[in-house]
Design a protein around this nucleic acid. Structure first.
Lengths: 205, 205
DNA sequence: TTGTATCTGAACTGATCGGTTTATAGTTTG
DNA sequence: CAAACTATAAACCGATCAGTTCAGATACAA
């Protein structure tokens, strides 16, 4: 699983190839990206590319795994206990909403959905690294807040899921369908505010 | 826009072609579907197919538009005033949640996302026929409920969007990523219940 | 029966793409 | 310098696919 197959991870041009592949795959998906395009984007000959990666699929999964790891790291550290719940949630909602409609997040999601049948394990990897990972942190925070008596939640798991879902309102679907691709700070803030208002109405003390 | 180009809508085999195209496109996406496959699925020769549709793109957009219209019709009539708000919302939430994770809805969404760059107008058509159309009905209902004093909502538009978003909690992302493709009635009911609970906590009188 | 329109199947074109090979040239190391 | 390694460009192969062509089959109307 960790070492999918015989991939030379050494060599001067390895990272260069990977960067080119990342760029083209995220832009065009798996089928849409031609190996020639990738080689060109990487500034490397096709033969060199094939000396590092035995085939296109393996190159793709390598890129996808790397991206999922980056995603996981990005999600962490959105939460800071000490402050009052409403404030913490507002900050988290704002950052989450902004992240959810970011180019990066959208491209990864798009490739996962588009390539779902060709790479069934990809959706799972993305889900664990992204949504599930973020929700785990959220659950931890909510539990502490409940202990402190700041919130009253029966089912913290579903509360966490509802919270992240509320951060998608109005903006996420539009981004996913390509209807609107950039969002102003005030649009984001408005959604975050509405999300927190609803969350606190339900779970506030 | 309505009449994308020269398409013969008459002829014995027109609907037959369209049905075959629907089947294959929804299953395989745009690139994944070969014209030969479509012709075979439609029980028609490729020459006949091309006598109705000048090219593959046009055939695809025709299918997509037709599907979006069907989608719109399905969304309507989920709402019945006379009953108390909580009951109406629960029924609507249950039906909406079930619809959102249905094979049909998922496949259409998937193709829209995957083919976003190739057909920018497709996402828009889907959005208008699906989410936006459904929300328009929801807004109408919410306005009446506010008038009757059953609900207290400042911004009915965002309330409607929050409502449909809450119906996706836990199930929708999993379905989109192919992690879980079928959902039990009790899973759906649980999500609907949680959605209504939260909605009523925020907007109930 | 004859004429007309539609449909069929199969072959074909031209283009793209994944993947391989080859002949060549630069770089490193001893 | 020479051997070993690494990279390159370009040609090439086999497969797939969109779209065309065409000779003949089918159906139907006068």
């Amino acid at each position: 699983m960790t070492q999918t197959a015989a991939i030379l991870r050494t060599g001067r041009k390895f990272d260069q190839v990977l960067r080119g592949a990342r760029e083209v795959f995220l832009a065009d998906g798996f089928e849409g990206a031609s190996v020639d395009d990738i080689a060109r984007a990487a500034g490397v000959s096709k033969a060199t590319l094939y000396s590092y990666f035995p085939d296109k699929r393996l190159l793709f999964t390598e890129v996808a795994q790397t991206e999922c790891k980056r995603l996981a790291e990005n999600v962490i550290s959105m939460i800071d206990d000490s402050k009052p719940a409403r404030e913490v949630l507002t900050i988290a909602a704002t950052q989450l909403a902004a992240f959810l409609v970011s180019d990066f997040s959208q491209q990864v999601f798009r490739v996962c959905v588009a390539e779902r049948d060709r790479f069934p394990e990809l959706g799972m990897a993305f889900f664990e690294a992204g949504p599930q990972n973020g929700q785990r942190h959220m659950v931890e925070y909510l539990e502490k807040a409940v202990e402190k008596g700041e919130l009253a939640i029966e089912d913290v798991q579903i509360a966490a899921e509802q919270f992240s879902e509320l951060c998608k309102v109005r903006i996420w679907t539009k981004a996913a369908l390509g209807i609107q691709t950039s969002f102003s700070k005030s649009e984001i803030d408005e959604i975050a505010l509405q999300a927190v208002d609803m969350f606190m109405a339900r779970y506030g003390v």
